[in-house]
Amino acid sequence: MSDASKEWPLWEVFVRGKGGLSHRHVGSVHAVDGKMALEHARDTYTRRMEGVSLWVLPSAQIVASDPGDAAALFEPAEDKVYRHPTFYKIPDGITHI
């Protein structure tokens, strides 16, 4: 029988592809600690020159929003169109705005 306590824990991997970009989630690796997680992340997810920076985080430490709350969390923003610059009509000819 597999013993869950003997497994190497799962870590999520985030790669910054190029200077100036944000870190993007690319997948997971199994590792015993942060140092190993970085090595495994480097050897698994940056083989095709895909990165300048790596973040790793134990999967169990991720706090996620509940998909059941998606409507309450995210839909109210849909009708606040005044937050988008395209909501505002600026006459042609007026620049720098």
Binding site: W8, V29, H30, A31, E39, H40, D43, T44, R47
Partner: peptide, 11 residues
């Protein structure tokens, strides 16, 4: 011994 290690050694 583990998949991740396989990739490391191959690198």
């Amino acid at each position: 011994p583990a998949l991740e290690v396989d990739l490391s050694l191959a690198n």
